[in-house]
């Protein structure tokens, strides 16, 4: 399993748009399921945000102290079901690496037992079948698998169970379990007065101390319109009797980001529900 690598892309052309840069990157990677991905950067105020494809790169607020400009190529949108939607092996691997990293950094909460099982699939993806002839105790000591390293024996027990599963299969098995974690695939906005989560299925509102269980959920099918006016963000339900749901973001640009993520996620949501799927059209 190759480790993730940092790539720096430089351009001479100040007119280059976000889309030209993005297309260049996906061509190099050989990726076709491009609709899940984006280029992430840190803006001049230190906030992580996504490169807009329809604007020039130089018009966007990329931190200028870094030369060359730095971007992370990452999944921006998540499928509703990995086994239905992630077809290309490169797409599967990029999701696997990104989700694994988020779990190891505790950005996605994962109960210990699940973490052990996931780690065993990561090990199967990396080493193949468990073989006690060549795998001496300590064989996982140098791998980042769990927040703490003392779980080798338990991971090994699961690892032995995965005999015969190929690397790609192991990564997909990993993702099939990870996608059921509450925080998987949710874009959280915590600077808002209530914590907001945007994901493939809609908008959720959380209390700041519990990002696992939404206080209220608004699936796309129940939302008529989302909009903002300066720092105020308003969600109008389909049901006209239900009250509008509004909140204030600390900055206008947070509202712009929330709206862009709503549009992108809902676009994919609609396409999935058309008989002619994205994959079929491609």
């Amino acid at each position: 399993m190759p480790e993730p690598i940092n790539v720096t892309v430089t351009t001479m052309d100040p007119k280059t748009t976000g889309k030209q840069l993005f297309d260049h990157v996906v061509n190099i990677v050989g990726l076709r399921e491009v609709w899940f991905f984006g280029l992430q950067y840190v803006d001049s105020r230190g906030y992580s945000t996504w490169l807009q494809l329809n604007k020039k790169v130089t018009q966007q607020d990329v931190k200028k102290e870094k030369d060359p400009l730095q971007f992370k190529f990452r999944a921006k949108f998540f499928p509703e079901d990995v086994s239905e939607e992630l077809i290309q092996e490169i797409t599967q691997r990029l999701f696997f690496l990104q989700v694994k990293e988020a779990i190891l950094k505790d950005e996605i909460y994962c109960p210990t037992e699940t973490a052990v099982l996931l780690a065993s699939y990561a090990v199967q993806a990396k080493y193949g079948d468990y073989n006690k002839e060549i795998r001496n105790p300590g064989y996982l000591a140098n791998d980042r698998l769990l927040p703490q390293q003392q779980w080798e024996e338990r991971i090994q027990n699961w690892h032995e169970e995965h005999r015969g599963i190929q690397r790609e299969g192991s990564m997909m098995d990993y993702l099939k379990i990870a996608q059921d974690l509450e925080m998987y695939g949710v874009n959280y906005f915590e600077e808002t007065e209530l914590c907001l989560g945007v994901d493939a299925l809609g908008l959720n509102i959380y209390e700041h101390d519990d990002k696992l269980t939404p206080k209220i959920g608004f699936p796309w099918s129940e939302i008529r319109n989302v909009s903002f006016n300066d720092k105020k963000f308003v969600l109008k339900p389909i049901n006209k009797k239900a009250p509008d749901f509004g909140f204030y973001a600390p900055h206008l640009r947070v509202n712009k980001q929330i709206l862009a993520l709503c549009m992108g996620n809902h676009e994919l949501y609609m396409r999935r529900r058309k008989p002619d799927t994205i994959e079929a059209r491609e």
Binding site: I223, R224, N225, S227, F228, D230, L259, M263, H266, K274
Partner: peptide
């Protein structure tokens, strides 16, 4: 400037704009 400070997305209306 005013336009940049506002944004809207019709979730339900978006279905009608989908290419058939």
């Amino acid at each position: 400037l005013r336009q940049q400070r506002m944004g809207t997305y019709g979730v339900r209306a978006a279905w009608r704009r989908l290419p058939q």
